[in-house]
Design a protein around this nucleic acid. Structure first.
Lengths: 215, 215
DNA sequence: GTATCCTAAATTGGCGCCAATATTGGTAAC
DNA sequence: GTTACCAATATTGGCGCCAATTTAGGATAC
């Protein structure tokens, strides 16, 4: 393992190491199963030992990495059962507030969502994996905000990271990504038409799709 | 399957400090707003500085304590809006799997639940606040397990801690506690009768009750 | 030639010190 | 008498060292 990404460390002077490691796991730069040696991370992100340890502790609390005492930390192996359970939870949470989203939708918020959906499509073509991932996050976050439950928005953002440790398998084909983009627009359409049931259907489909198809 | 917590607490000479601080926050021993000075915690729990800091970092990640840079950590002030949002989330999650709970309920699991409900009632009279709290947790955990989604069980345990920083206001009167105990048994009755709708109604009522009444 | 044991290198993780910063109390000036 | 400023104290938080444990490699015995 050689230090390939010294440029990421160079640009950000005081960025939280936890975020950096998290991103590298989510973007697949640190594949599942990788042992995260403290020395390596120290050099890779140009930070101190305590910073590395705090990051690893936080990530293991979030269950993104596993901690084996006296052996070290390694990126969690994606677990099919867990992945399914997590997407079930997301379906439950996001469809549960669909009614409220329809009620709270204003022309303004719909315009914002259109913009974010378009930005996602743009990033499909021109952006990095990370930018694309974050564009997707931003869209869903904005949509969920209409549910008028800030805690739920944060919670979904949180559990979303929980099994996205398999970004490769989830965002594999371009066809699927483009389908996701189209679904975003369809959700906005349902929102505009105040059709809560259709919105729920679309959300469930949208979330389950990536996890279910590989089987 | 049933793990006895009292053993682990007594036997393990080196119990995790995070758990100890967490418990003291949940039981109201460390009231909301309290500044958690590192020196104090060090002495209080007879542990080292790094242990204290790791615990504080973990608790601030869980948003149970707030961190003000160069000022320290203090127990989160309970927030009415957040509390309401969290119980809404709990209602969504726990009622969502009610159908599956009804389907998966066996005579065995119902017997276990009866035992836990009785144990809760017992602790109402003879137990400490902590034992009582944990008995309640154990009952709801066992109930949720019937939903056949381990991630959801863990998630609920997690968000449950998120606003329980107001244990005093939640468990104030004996009358309410006894009502909770009765509701546990009613839930089991609904489960036994395979009445999913009644179970949902009871769960929603049970969760919302403590938070809504004070208003 | 292979398996086992023992030694050496590497890695984790506990612990304490010290600098940077905030807070409090006291003093002086208005 | 009150306010503002300064100094002393207390608290946080960064950093590095060293012990404990594991792993890998080599040597020896069978």
């Amino acid at each position: 393992m050689s230090e390939v990404q010294s440029d990421t460390a160079a640009v950000s002077e005081e960025r939280d190491v936890t975020e950096l490691v998290l991103q590298d796991i989510l973007t697949g730069m640190l594949p599942a199963g990788t042992w995260l040696k403290q020395i390596d991370l120290e050099r890779r992100y140009d930070c101190t030992r305590p910073e590395v340890r705090r990051a690893l502790d936080r990530l293991s609390q979030k269950r993104l990495v596993a901690h084996v005492p006296n052996r070290g930390y390694h990126v969690y192996q994606p677990d099919d059962r867990r992945a399914k359970e997590v997407s079930d939870i997301r379906v439950i949470l996001e469809t549960a507030v669909a009614d409220r989203m329809v009620v709270n939708a204003t022309p303004d918020s719909i315009a914002t969502l259109r913009g974010l959906a378009r930005y996602f499509d743009e990033m499909t073509l021109t952006g990095t994996i990370l930018e694309h991932y974050e564009a997707n996050l931003a869209f869903h976050r904005e949509l969920l905000l209409l549910g008028d439950n800030q805690e739920l928005v944060d919670l979904v953002s949180e559990i979303r990271q929980r099994t996205s440790s398999a970004p490769v398998s989830q965002w594999r084909t371009r066809a699927r990504i483009e389908k996701s983009g189209r679904e975003h627009h369809m959700m906005i359409d349902a929102l505009e038409a105040r059709d809560a049931e259709e919105l729920k259907r679309l959300i469930a489909l949208h979330i389950r799709q990536p996890a279910d198809t590989p089987k």
